[in-house]
Amino acid sequence: MSENTLIDDDFVAAVRRDMLKFAQLQLRDAALAEDAVQEALLAALAGGRSFAGRSALKTWVFSILRNKIVDLIRAQGRTTNVSALGDDDAALDASFDALFKTNAHWRPENRPFGWGDPEESLREERFWAVFEICLNHLPERTARVFMMREFLELETDEVCRELGITISHCNVILHRARHGLRRCLETSWFAPGEKPC
């Protein structure tokens, strides 16, 4: 397949839309996301590489975008005060504490239940819509640390270094994010009995 048939306007538009969504989730800044996507697309298309198919091309474009996002985060890292605890973070912490009895064991009604075969969910389009909503629902700074760790796959000590926070603070933030995401998925997707039509 020649590159000309791979890269038509419709394909670029579709990839661009997916990239923008991803970049905005990471950067939470529409203009910055727009720039990153534009640069990544240009770099990918100017590379003159040939690809086995659209899927391979898309993977390549996204790997360029991921590197751009890491660079941007490194550049702007210390300018945001990630250690400030927002109201939404405090609310998330309170919602975590509320899961436990005073002796710090689970309240029976909040005890995590089995999610069946969650792998099956990963194949469902609607699951990913819920997943994205839950991600967007995390407090901004908390989400940022979590995404650096889980999406950009930086090691925890690098995340801490970039953001100028201690490892133990980083652990607290990651735990908060995982709690938020877990609870959101549990109540919005895995809750037994109610399946949206």
């Binding site: 997916d18 995590p112 239940f113 990913w128 877990r182």
Partner: peptide, 28 residues
């Protein structure tokens, strides 16, 4: 049991995050 479920769910979150990016990157 609650914490055993929690542990499985932590692994699931990691899997989902990895898949999220891979999926965006390579879904057919």
């Amino acid at each position: 049991r609650g914490c055993r479920n929690f542990r499985v769910q932590m692994d699931f979150l990691r899997t989902a995050c990895r898949r999220y990016l891979g999926r965006r990157g390579s879904e057919e």
